[in-house]
Every structure is written in C-alpha cells, then in structure tokens.
Design a protein around this nucleic acid. Structure first.
Lengths: 200, 200
DNA sequence: CGCTTAATCTTGACAGTGTCAACATACAAT
DNA sequence: ATTGTATGTTGACACTGTCAAGATTAAGCG
C-alpha cells in the first residue's frame, strides 16, 4: 500500500513525461530527443527505456495526458443541455480551438502522424482518445430532435463531420496554412451556423 | 538524347523528385532519407545538395508537384456553374477526399508540419498552395446569392471553414483517427448538407 | 540481520541520419 | 586549349534511437 517510492531519482517515469511535455511545448516534437530529455532530467541516456518500451510509448503517454487535460477543459460543456444550440456550438468550437492553440504541440501529438500512423497508439491511448470522441457524439445525438430521420446513424455522421471541421481548423491554424488567427472568432461563428441549422 | 551514365546524370533534379515521391508513397516521409534516396537514384550521398539547399527544399518541390496534380484533378470542378449546389459539393468533397487518399503521403506533405511548421515553405510553394485555396474561395463567392449579407467577407469564411472540414476529414482518415473509410460516402453527404443549406 | 532476486540506472557500442568542406570530373564559353 | 562553372564524390562531424552487458540499489524472505 505504501506507494512505490522513489529511490534514486524520485518518480522518474512521471518526471520524464513532465519534462518531455515541457520540451515539446517549447520546441516541438521533432526536436525532442531521448538523449536531450535524459540530460534535462539529469539521468543517463538510456534510463528512460526502463519505463517506456521506446520513444513511441513515451509520446503516447504524453498524448494520454493531453486527452485527460482536454476532458478537464471540455467535458463540462458536453454535459450541458443547451437551449440555444448555435451559441453553444460557437462557444464549444472556440474552446476547442483555444485548447488546440494553447497546447499546440501536444494537440498535434494527440492527433498526429508520429503516433497514429508512423508509430502505434498504445491501447490506453486508443481508449481514452475514443472516449473523448464518444462523449461528443453522445452530446450530438442528445441534441438531435427525437423524431429525426435515422437518428442514430445521422448523429454519428454529424459528430464526425463537425469534429473534423474543428480538427481541420485547428491543424491549419497550428501549422500556419491558409488561416489567419485573427479570424478565429468569425470562423467559429460560421462553423456554428453551418452546423446547427441542419439539426433542427 | 540518350543519357550517358558516366559522371553526370542528365536530369538529376527531376529524377530525385520522382524517386523521392515514389519512396514517400511507398513508405512515408519519415522513412525518406537523403542517403537512401541517393542510392535509389544511383548517385552519391550528397549529390542532391547541388539541386536542393537541404531536405526541406526537396520536400517543398514534391509538395509543389502535389498541388499541381491536385489542380489537374480538381480545377475543372471549380470552373463549373452548378445549379444543384448540394450535389456539386457532394461530388467535390468526395473528389477531394479521394485525392487525399490516393496520394495520402503526398497530401500529408502538402499540408503538414514537416514543411509548414518545422521547415519553411518555399516561396513558390506558398504561391501555388495559396492559388489552390484562392480558386476555391472564388468559387464559393460566385455561388453565394448576390444579395448575400456581407458577401465578400462571408464567402471567405465559408471557404475557410468548409475547406477545413475537408482537410480535417482527410487527415483523420489518413492517420486512422476516429473515422472509418467505409463511411466516406455518408460523411460527404452530411458535409454537403451542412454546408449548402446556409448558402441559399 | 543476511541472502537472493528483481528493478533500476550507467556505460559502451552500432547503425543510421543531415549536411558541410574539400576534392574530382565534365561540360560551356573564351 | 584554357579557363570557369556546374555537377558529382569522399571524408568527416555531430547527432539520433536503441540494444547488450555490467553496476547499483530496493524489496522480499528466512
């Protein structure tokens, strides 16, 4: 029952995650090296390999934490029962994009190639990331009129497409393609308008 | 003219682009190394550096070709004057996503971090990529009712948001996050419906 | 306490990377 | 033919991820 306490270096596993998150936020995933990280924590080059199978697993752990933080910030909104859906979605998309910008590097990690395509997402990561989407999909279903045509299936599709919109906006903004940060507000407005008018 | 195999390669620059594109399509950008590429073309490790300042410039050249191919496939649609906007957009989004899937690795390169965030997009790349979007934005403006409120600005926003939707869908599909390829059709339907009902 | 065992950390090593400097070759223009 | 310039090659350097083997420490048990 006494939590396994640090002997030499404290809880190295968590220290690695913290420092890596910090480094990534500072200069991007591409610049994160296992060796640099080890040095930052004050430990030997390969020490991390006793806590993570490889670099990919470390990144997955960071992404997991990201999803957890995402839920801290966004989860409450998904439990609301809004009467004005359009203004709700305006707020939601703004919050979503805010998160993606304030945790830009972590966001890119959560949904990006290094983990999902090139590496392999951990099972726990796959679970927690899917929960986030599922939670959103449930919200959408809840908001569709009860007599909506083919409610179940359609709600899923609407959730997929609208999430994709927010994701696309976030990525293009983050990477500096096409979109201007000064226009975030009006893009959220438009996104909300586009989405909602079809749901009633 | 028959290329002599001795010392000079003839058209090395284009050969490098072609082979690199092939390799990327085969196994992703991350696996592309300057050395492996050189070997694939049958040339020395650093030969490419007389045609491209660095790896980033090579990638930009590949991305440029990607945008050119994108326009070959999509440009004609943007010159149509559709009477049924919703079905037009259904077709467009399907074509867009098809392109993103058939040229998955190249698409990720065209809009991805390695170039836009980490590296630096070439000026020619910035130009050709912006042309593509501009062309789409013009189409959207053309389709808005002439008496539409604040037409100019609103058209741009709608173009940004809808492009982001397609981009988001493409990326999530490509990376294998959340979306199922079997649902592409119905997601395109929903995307078209969401977009168009606001434009009339 | 002492002994064993398993967890953790370090050092050494290897193959791989991008890219710079110096050198070699071939083509173009004088 | 001689020069200059574009193009190709070899060597080298500082990095990277990660494996194998040795060193250290904590934990479990008599």
């Amino acid at each position: 029952m006494p939590a396994k306490k640090n002997y030499h270096h404290g809880d190295l596993r968590q220290s690695l995650i913290n420092e890596a998150t910090r480094m990534i936020a500072e200069s991007g995933v591409e610049k994160l090296s296992m060796r640099g990280l080890a040095e930052g924590v004050g430990v030997s080059r390969t020490a991390a390999y006793h806590h993570f199978k490889d670099k990919n697993e470390l990144l997955c752990a960071i992404a997991e934490q990201g999803f957890s933080q995402w839920y801290d910030k966004m989860g409450s909104r998904l439990k609301e029962v809004p009467d004005d859906l359009e203004s709700w979605f305006r707020g939601f998309s703004h919050a979503y994009i805010d998160f993606a910008q304030n945790h830009a590097e972590q966001y890119d990690l959560m949904f990006g190639r290094p983990i999902w395509k090139n590496g392999q997402p951990t099972e726990t990561l796959r679970d927690i990331s899917f929960e986030a989407f599922q939670c959103y999909a449930d919200f959408v279903k809840k908001c569709l009129p009860e007599d909506h045509f083919n409610q179940e299936q359609d709600a899923l599709r609407v959730a997929q497409v609208s999430w994709s919109s927010l994701h696309g906006l976030s990525r293009l903004l983050n990477d500096g393609v096409y979109l201007d940060k000064a226009a975030i507000n009006s893009m959220c407005d438009v996104a909300a308008r586009l989405l909602v008018q079809n749901m009633r």
